[in-house]
Amino acid sequence: MLDGLMARANADPMLMRRARFLELEFGLDMGDGPAVIQVNKGHVSASAAGPAARPVFSIAGPKEAWAEFSRPLPKPGFHHLMAMNENRHTRFEGDVYPLLVNLFFVTGLLSKLRQGEAA
């Protein structure tokens, strides 16, 4: 699923423009095990998180939550990353400052879950 997500994200020039100066690694667990998302100046990729992975922050939640998030019109509380966090459907770990100041990029990336394949 993450490969498809990365492909759709990389194919969006306006989303990648937001990340044109960004170098960031963060964790993402959508119920299939932890992955590391690498953002490298306008390109994004995903890989399984190895034992040595220490992403600055991570986002994790169960499959069911991401499935609802991925629907075209999710229920209240599942409709945005911050809504999922406030309703404890997902959890943030680590230093969330890089997330907060790059929030449009991260939420734009996750919005690609609503196109094409669903979780």
Binding site: P72, L73, P74, H79, H80, L81, M82, A83, L100, L103, F104, T107
Partner: peptide, 11 residues
């Protein structure tokens, strides 16, 4: 703007 975007309804 990014802090409040999630407060908007998805439709």
């Amino acid at each position: 703007a990014s802090a409040v975007e999630g407060l908007i309804g998805p439709g």
